[in-house]
């Protein structure tokens, strides 16, 4: 299927890029903090919020910013598993500002959480912050979100004008029902005389039978190519 998406199953390892990007003071702080968290997990509660100030917040690669990557490194240093890990991460998210919450969401695929962090993804998808919604729809959501919720999340992105190439897993998770929802959405827009976002068309084209006899919709699908 010719659907272009962020197809990473796991995000890039944040560690090597970070080590190159941080100056000596920041690197020393992060290494010390990782050791502290490994020895005493509760230390993460005061170290995690301080990361932006200590390490900076520029872009590191296409997936991570510096602060998100450094926070992910702290989370992966937690010597906790299962429910205990989920509780610590959930409380960091609950008490976090938007930058901290983005970092938690982006780090989820690196943590051994099973579906214990789905509540954080769901809470984010109920909100209105497009940067958080985008962070929530990474490899973790692609692997764990049930079909109906994944479809609703994609549709929400369309409404919030979040480009669909930033939603992980669309290539494998787009199904006939999602194509039907997007076709209906496109039809609604056409009837209202409004633009149809280009990036939904490949999903609809992959399931041509959802278009049915709607001539305007067939036309819109053909036009681009």
């Amino acid at each position: 299927m010719a659907v272009t998406t962020a197809s990473l199953s796991t995000p890039p390892d944040p560690q090597p890029g970070l080590i190159a990007a941080l100056d000596d003071t920041a690197r020393t702080w992060l290494e010390g903090s990782v050791a502290e968290v490994a020895a005493e997990p509760a230390a993460v509660r005061r170290l995690f919020p301080a990361v932006r100030r200590r390490c900076g917040h520029g872009r590191l690669d296409s997936y991570w910013t510096v602060d998100e990557a450094a926070r992910a490194v702290l989370l992966t240093a937690l010597p906790l598993r299962g429910q205990a890990l989920a509780d610590e991460v959930t409380r960091l998210h609950r008490h976090g500002d938007p930058a901290e919450q983005r970092a938690v969401l982006r780090a989820l695929p690196l943590l051994d959480l099973g579906d214990l962090a789905l509540a954080l993804v769901r809470e984010t998808l109920r909100g209105n912050d497009t940067t958080l919604i985008e962070a929530a729809l990474g490899p973790y959501a692609a692997a764990h979100l049930p079909d109906a919720e994944y479809r609703q999340a994609v549709l929400k992105c369309v409404f919030y004008e979040i480009p669909l190439d930033r939603v992980t897993g669309l290539g494998t998770r787009a199904d006939r029902e999602l194509a039907r929802m997007l076709a209906d959405f496109a039809h609604e827009r056409i009837v209202a005389g409004r633009d149809v976002p280009e990036d939904i068309l490949p999903v609809v084209r992959a399931f041509p039978d959802v278009v049915g006899g709607r001539a305007e919709l067939q036309h819109a699908l053909k036009e681009e190519g």
């Binding site: 005061r46 995690f48 919020p49 301080a50 100030r53 008490h95």
Partner: peptide, 10 residues
């Protein structure tokens, strides 16, 4: 018991 989290913020 939770002030540590907030006192660390920017």
């Amino acid at each position: 018991d939770e002030l540590d989290r907030y006192l660390a913020k920017d």
